[in-house]
Design a protein around this nucleic acid. Sequence first.
DNA 1: CTGAAAGCGCTTACAG
DNA 2: CTGAAAGCGCTTACAG
Lengths: 314, 314
Amino acid sequence: MVNGTSHTRMKESTRTRVLQAMQELGYQPNRTARSLRLNQTDMIAMILNKIDNPVYGPLRHGVYEAAAEHGATVLLGDAETMRSGSQFLTRLLSQGTVDGILIRGEGLLDDDVMAELRSHPKPILILEHALDHPWIDVDDRRAGEIATRFLVNLSHRHIVFVGGSGYLSQQRYLGYQQAMDAAGLTPAPHLATGFGEQAGADGLRQAMQAATAPTAIVVNNIMSAVGVLAAARDLGIAIPDQLSVVGIHDVDLMQHLRPAVTAVRMPMYQLGRAGVEALYDLIAGRPSAGGVITDPEPELVIRDSATALTRVRD
Amino acid sequence: MVNGTSHTRMKESTRTRVLQAMQELGYQPNRTARSLRLNQTDMIAMILNKIDNPVYGPLRHGVYEAAAEHGATVLLGDAETMRSGSQFLTRLLSQGTVDGILIRGEGLLDDDVMAELRSHPKPILILEHALDHPWIDVDDRRAGEIATRFLVNLSHRHIVFVGGSGYLSQQRYLGYQQAMDAAGLTPAPHLATGFGEQAGADGLRQAMQAATAPTAIVVNNIMSAVGVLAAARDLGIAIPDQLSVVGIHDVDLMQHLRPAVTAVRMPMYQLGRAGVEALYDLIAGRPSAGGVITDPEPELVIRDSATALTRVRD
DNA sequence: CTGAAAGCGCTTACAG
DNA sequence: CTGAAAGCGCTTACAG
């Protein structure tokens, strides 16, 4: 009766007395024994590449919430700590640690680690497109397109795409290209300077060296937007008057910068929830509803860092 | 021999053949069975109040690293998800989930939850001073003192202390008071507006309403510094010319803001490592080396947001 | 319907 | 020195 089944019939008074005793003595079932018996730990792992990135906040909430609904706890790991042979990886690969794994590795897990993970007996779901694995993701291509089209509609003609590297960045750049093409404009090459604040600053400096300086910039990694603002200030470029900036992904911080940064908000919370559901489909052997999350769509949040092009530059 | 002991004597060739077979078949020991037998899971929990706060980055690194050295994995939880009766808490309280718990709750865990946690059979270490529990922390009082003294030395006389709430903030305010007292200045009341960007903006607005406006401000919560910068811009207050700003705690972001923010760096990485060591002392029944971490000391990182007071305001 | 027994995969104390 | 057996605390199939 401890686990709630009504296996035993007993006097109601006895039942309540037992339950009361359980409570008084603070009885807590031993999860380990249960896990061993059921071959199921009610834990899932979530592996992120840069845990500190604030875009993961809502993702994590979604994952924790949905996991809780499945009675599961989340083991959070950073790809950085997952070198081959690392404690975390060994643990993860051991049987009886975790019922399934959610990975957003973005190419940062090297081939050795991926091979080890793929040998894992429990299901793995990739939070980004992977060739030979179930996956789920937000619509990165569309985010690039939305950001770019917004700038095109503001009459910008010289728009560059800055920051990032790896698969997701390529998707967003693809969206940028599409929007540029659709407007009859020539896409600039992808300035893939990486992630974080410094990458944004580097990207802007590179962009400004082009023969015709851009009037607008799509920033791939949202923290890079901070670096773009800083570099613009340092270079004496006024935002948005001389340069419009739109970021991809949105975080609280953006509304507190000056100027507040216009950004494309991605449904990261929903990605988290859907990722857990898809993972549990796999765990249960059901067909998994993966693919691109289209509801809600990426959404443009208009703030102060982008404005219509009024002056014509020559 | 599977766990490395040389219990069995056998031909060397046999031994290697077995080990090889283990590798080829991808044998991984079952952690759950091991945990059940040993009554030890090689997992510790770390509970933070606002997981997203970037000041936790280095703390997490320290904890993960030190835990790995003890052969342990970290279960990371947010105090927010730890309502009484929540999945995470139930899980944590179950026997056989975790060998020990590290909490930085800062008063955000309500009494019910704390009572439940205290009934936990495994050791708990608080990452901040707690009356009736082993604890360890960085030197918050000293950080407040360092920030304030720096401003005093820059000839500021009207210095306010803004942001935060709860025990840690009080410690820092205490340090502020000490530095003000030592300089023969009157401490302003603690403007405890809370955490995050908005709290900083609110704090600055309140501070500027005082009869004599401050020329310098110590910002308790580092993300609040972002809000202080934004509000200053919105109010037309030039930083650092009209207002000097020093933050407590330091994160990468601060050097990428404009102006870059002068801040007191706290040894969070070391706190993480020391916390794990102290927790394992408790687990082993050894006396625990808790208390305030004094090596390294909080360190002032001078950037551009604070400058010497030149103009005298009346 | 219900109680007693088997077994999950380990580790270790014990018998041979 | 080494092999076989017991037992960690659960859950569930099975016998009564």
